[in-house]
Structure formats: structure tokens, C-alpha cells
Design a protein around this nucleic acid. Sequence first.
DNA 1: GTCTATATGATGATAGAC
DNA 2: GTCTATCATCATATAGAC
Lengths: 184, 184
Amino acid sequence: MTTAERLIESMHTLLWERGYSGTSPRAVQELAGAGQGSMYHHFRSKAGLAVAAELQMSDELKHQITARLDSGSTTREKVAAFLTLDENVLRGCRLGRLVQDAAVVDDDSLRAPIAATFDWIQDQIRQVLAEGRRNGELDPNLDVDDLAATILAVRQGAYVLARGAQSSEPFRRATQGILQLLPR
Amino acid sequence: MTTAERLIESMHTLLWERGYSGTSPRAVQELAGAGQGSMYHHFRSKAGLAVAAELQMSDELKHQITARLDSGSTTREKVAAFLTLDENVLRGCRLGRLVQDAAVVDDDSLRAPIAATFDWIQDQIRQVLAEGRRNGELDPNLDVDDLAATILAVRQGAYVLARGAQSSEPFRRATQGILQLLPR
DNA sequence: GTCTATATGATGATAGAC
DNA sequence: GTCTATCATCATATAGAC
């Protein structure tokens, strides 16, 4: 891995763990084993490096989500796979946690990659739901745009509850709760 | 208002706006019109003042939620009232946003009031749902514990999506999406 | 109870040598 | 490309006078 790649990787890890405001350039440099000058040679600023890390987050997330939404055979199975517990729920969603940070929301270059990824995810879910509606698996009267937003919101909110409780139980409950409303 | 009350009020405002890590004692003092020494006379630390502010947040939130859950006549109306758009969705949930901050989650005295409030809210929703099930408004096979977690998660997640998009539209969609799954 | 002074370390970045 | 030195500012308090 090049120094630039290690810096991005380290920023990715720390953004997930400590958030944007909670991550100092110094901490990133230490984790990457790079010096002060090195970081500022490859990136204009902390925000510039963070944007690069966000793009990596987005890429990884898209691959994971595609794999999950493709995994089941029925609509319900696909949605269930999307909502299924991660290895480590308490870490939260790496993108979702960032939007709580005012420094991120106030800087469009930092916020835009997150917004775009959320849009992409909702659209993937919407397509799965739309197919289910065509198949007759779902009620033809359902608004699949709204329901796609709901399903993503359940996942994001489930992370919030799990972090508050420091337990994965609320995550499991919240995701089970929506699944019981979808026809088998 | 006493100085202590103004300090709590100011911390409340800034926690909501900037989060815990993003709020400095100095900023709180300025907003409250109090000096450095004054703050540390009334509170042991930044964390101590933040706990006091969290208790105020919790109190206000409980009153608002009670009012909403009591407002409708049917189960669906009550849930809809709970999920209804706030004046300013983009601010997010004052408690939900705090749990994304590692400094909050790592300090039990800061996390506990949030966890307790989330538990309280879920229990209130659960009671509304349980009554609806007894009434025959809801399917008797529904797990109301899970569904209560889902409904709170939708609200929390809807805030996350709205902040990401810097628009209240995803909030509206996500909440409508779950309501269309509840029987009329 | 409130004020000013002071302390210690971190933050985010720049300068310039190598 | 990477390193060390340096910088101004801020964060989170503590000390002690008034």
C-alpha cells in the first residue's frame, strides 16, 4: 500500500470509530505511520483526506449491500438480508454516524458523498420492492419509494438505539418489527 | 433564571446544535453570560453540566411524546402523531444525535440518561400498541415489543436521512412508509 | 458566587531542510 | 516525498483574589 492509501485507510477507520470532529490529523498520521508533512503533501487538508475516505466507505458499502440484496430469492428474504445484524452493530453505520456531526453537515464537500450514497441505497431497495410488487409478493397499492426510505431508516435508527443501549438487542427488535409487517 | 439554570439551558442548546465533543465549556459560558469560575463553581466538569442538560432534554421530550401519543383516538392516529414532522427536522433528535459521539458512549454517566429515555419511549409506544391489539385494531399475532422498537427506530433513522439530504423529504417518506403498513 | 490569571496539552496547519 | 520545527489557537480545567 502506498502512503496515500494508508492515510485513507486510517482516516476511514478513525472516522468510523471517532467521527469527523473526533479524529485529529495527528491520530490519522500515527495510525498510518506517516509524518505530518507527508499527509499534507498528499492531501490539502483534513477535510480533503476525509472526503477520500468517504468515497472508499461508499464503495465498500455499495458492494456489501448489493451482495445482500441479491442473496435472497423472495422480496422478503432480500429485505431481511439487508436488515440483518452485522458482526459489530455497536460501531454503527460509518456514513450515518457522520451526518450527526455539525462540521460534516456544514461542509458540502463532506456531506455530498454521504447524501449520494443514501440515495443510491434507497434506489436499490426501491427496485427490489418494485419487483416484488410486480411479482404479486407485495400489495400493489404500496408506495415503494416511501417504503424504501422506511427500510433504510429502520436500519439507521436501529444503529442509534443499539448504541444508546450498548446492546444489539434493540437492533434485532427493530429489524424484526418491520419484517413482521411484510407479507410472507 | 439563576446562573446554574442558564448554564444548563445553554448546554442544552449547544448539545443539540453541535453535539457533546463539539461544544466547549467556553461556548456554553458565553451563551449563558457566565464566567469560567462561575461554571466550575456550579458544576464539577463539562460532563457534569452535560448530564444536567440531558436530564432537562429527557423531561421535555417525555412531555412532548406523552402529548402526541395521547392526541389521537385510534392506535394508528397515535402512532402517526408520534411520527409526525417536527418544526425543524434538520436539527435531528437531541438525544439520538449524542449517541453517535464516542465521548458520550464511553462515559456511562453521559450515556445512561439517554438509554433510560429511549427505554421509556419504547415502553410508551408498546402500551399504545398493546391497547390497539386488545381492541382488535391490530393483528393479535403482532409482537408489540419489536414493533415499538421499529417505530422509534424509524423516527431516529428518518432524522439521519433528513440530515444527510439536508431536506425533510426523506423524513416524511420514511414515516409515511411505516404508516402504510399499519391497518387503517 | 464570580472574576482574572495561569497551566497543560491538543488542534490544524505552514515552513523549510533533506 | 518525507521529516522536524514551529505557530496561533483552542480545550479543559485549577488557583486564588474579591
